[in-house]
């Protein structure tokens, strides 16, 4: 308690309190917010746009402008489409903690229903990539795996690594790991090209191929066994070298110490 009171006058105290309050509000909101109900019918669409606009005004407009026209802190959202919103908000990247070139993935604070409403609103600003349906990103053909793998190595592995582990870009930016990313979000990322990722629109990478890539990524990051043992992060020779030094040579030297050591003398035991 004494510690706490001593820090009360700290210049950052107000900020901490504010952040705590915000987090609490957000948490309560998330907990009590209405769960997503089926709002599939067409009449509900305009309602969704209205709801989305309200949510947008609260959560997004400070950077993207009240009507998504963009500002110095955030790009225009006219024409980015619902897929972009579903990806950015669904993966927790938006709302961003701070504007910047690299907005990291974090826990998502909106329910899927709210994301859909936001997406409906942004989609109404101008035509753009549409949130895919489950059939679009769920592969049923077993051949898709190898085709997806080849496409992945042509289009994706240069940044995300052969096993989808991610990699470095310039100036501290990075291509994130694809581990644990929803199939839908992988699909949407290819459609929309979030942040520094280029887009792979249907005109140059047809839907079918995106589905194949999704199948490969999900397989590689989720279901693929590692027959040889520990993957060591699937990062190639660097971690293998480290493991070889520490556990290979390290263990051998430990054994060598035992082999060469003098046996305990009787007097000392």
């Amino acid at each position: 308690m004494k510690k706490l009171s001593a820090r009360r006058r700290h210049p950052l105290a107000a900020l901490v309190v504010l952040l705590l309050a915000l987090a609490a509000t957000g948490g309560l909101y998330a907990a009590f917010a209405p769960a997503g109900k089926a709002q599939a019918d067409v009449a509900a669409q305009s309602l969704a746009i209205d709801e989305g606009k309200k949510l947008f005004a609260v959560g997004c407009s400070s950077c993207h402008g009240l009507n998504g026209e963009g500002s110095s802190d955030g790009p225009s959202l006219v024409g980015v489409g619902s897929a972009a919103v579903d990806f950015q908000v669904g993966t927790g990247r938006m709302p961003a903690q701070q504007p910047g070139a690299q907005v990291p993935r974090k826990p998502n604070i909106y329910s899927q229903a709210e994301i859909d409403q936001l997406a409906a609103f942004v989609a109404s600003l101008g035509p753009g990539p549409v949130t895919p349906t489950e059939e679009q990103y769920t592969s049923t053909n077993p051949d898709d795996l190898s085709k997806g793998g080849e496409l992945f190595r042509t289009n994706c592995a240069q940044c995300h690594n052969f096993a989808g582990q991610g990699g470095a870009l310039t100036q501290g930016k990075y291509a994130p790991s694809l581990e644990g990313v929803d199939a839908k979000h992988i699909y949407e990322a290819m459609q929309t090209g979030p942040q520094n990722m280029p887009s792979f629109p249907d005109s140059t990478m047809p839907e079918e191929q995106k589905k194949q890539i999704v199948a490969f990524v999900r397989h590689t990051t989720n279901d693929e066994p590692n027959p040889g043992g520990l993957t060591l992060g699937s990062l190639g020779p660097v971690t293998e070298g480290l493991f070889g030094w520490i556990f290979g040579l390290g263990a051998l030297i430990a054994v060598a110490i035992w082999v060469a050591a003098h046996t305990t003398k009787a007097k000392k035991s």
């Binding site: 190595r153 042509t154 995300h160 027959p227």
Partner: peptide, 27 residues
């Protein structure tokens, strides 16, 4: 038996127009 090394099946076959990041030689 414990740790995988050079999982070539995961790298895929070589094609001069393909590449994966983390392209390093052995240590």
């Amino acid at each position: 038996a414990i740790a995988s090394i050079n999982p070539i099946w995961a790298y895929g076959p070589y094609r001069p127009d393909q590449v994966s990041t983390d392209a390093q030689p052995d240590w």
